[in-house]
Amino acid sequence: MSPTVLTADRRSAESPAERLAARIQRHGALTVLALLVLLASAFSPGFASTDNLGAILGNNAFVWLLALGLTFVVLTGGIDLSVGSMYALGGVLAAWAAERYGTWAALLLPLAVGAAWGCVHGLLVARARTAPFIVTLAGLLGARGLLQLVTDEGATTHLVPPGSAFRALGEGTWTPVLVSAALFGLGALLLTRTRFGATTTAIGGNEHAATLMGLPVARTKTLVYVLSATLACAAGALGAARLGSGVTTVGVGYELTAIASVVIGGTLLTGGSGSVGGTVAGVLLLSVVHNLIDRSASQYGSAVTDTVNGAFLAAVVLAQALLDRGRRDE
């Protein structure tokens, strides 16, 4: 059968400007990042040195994993505020376990606790239908509380024994970058090439439709919180391997930077559209900005970092709102 052909393709009606706008949304962070790196290499002496690039990458690589897990949560239309706390918890648990039971425990304990904790978040969101914002806010507070308990209210600092194999994971510049890059690669594969990833995006795009299509909505929503919390704890453990100890005070506010990275990377905060690649660009962009401000050693110094981050975020959210409105008017 060949009925009337419906090309009905709206692209013809889409002006070049609109197409450009859509492209900017998808690759905006990457474009800005490339420009910034070029400009900085040209005008900021020493920016392009191996030492400096190593500092940008090596010191942040593990923290970027928070944004990776969060990308999946945000894609479903949810949010996970607990990742900063989970990062600190993972670090302290890893150091505590390394001190007592050795390398394997240092790796596995944070993963297990993160997965269990994330599972509670996920079940509360997906099955009990409570608001992700509140559930993970409770998680943020709860994890901080548990930290206090493990460290005798911060009085005890657990050290990863020097010479432990666990430390090797965080040493140097390139080990953390490679570990992180590998996880981002797996994350990208998970998002684009598995049914889990497809369902994640579909839920954020239209949860009702996803349900009617018979997709495993509740299971997938639960799993993204498991993924997010597990990655955050793993990142914390790797961070502890790098520092050599579990520090209770780290991670405060990291969830906000991670959310900013995800959104700057082009993932819609309402879910349904985004990519791991975008998040990579988002985290790199914020790290480079941070580095440039530190290096410029102006009279303001690093004090203005957060202000610049905030301005970036506002610009991105504004751009997304405008693009979204343009689309609706079509």
Binding site: R195, A198, T199, T201, A202, G205, N206, H208, A209, A210, L212, M213, G214, L215, G272, S273
Partner: peptide, 19 residues
């Protein structure tokens, strides 16, 4: 009842994609 932001092919196959 489909997902507007996903590709046409993905919408058609969601939940039973060939692997």
């Amino acid at each position: 009842n489909l997902v507007p932001m996903m590709s046409v092919a993905r919408n058609l196959h969601l939940g039973r994609e060939p692997r």
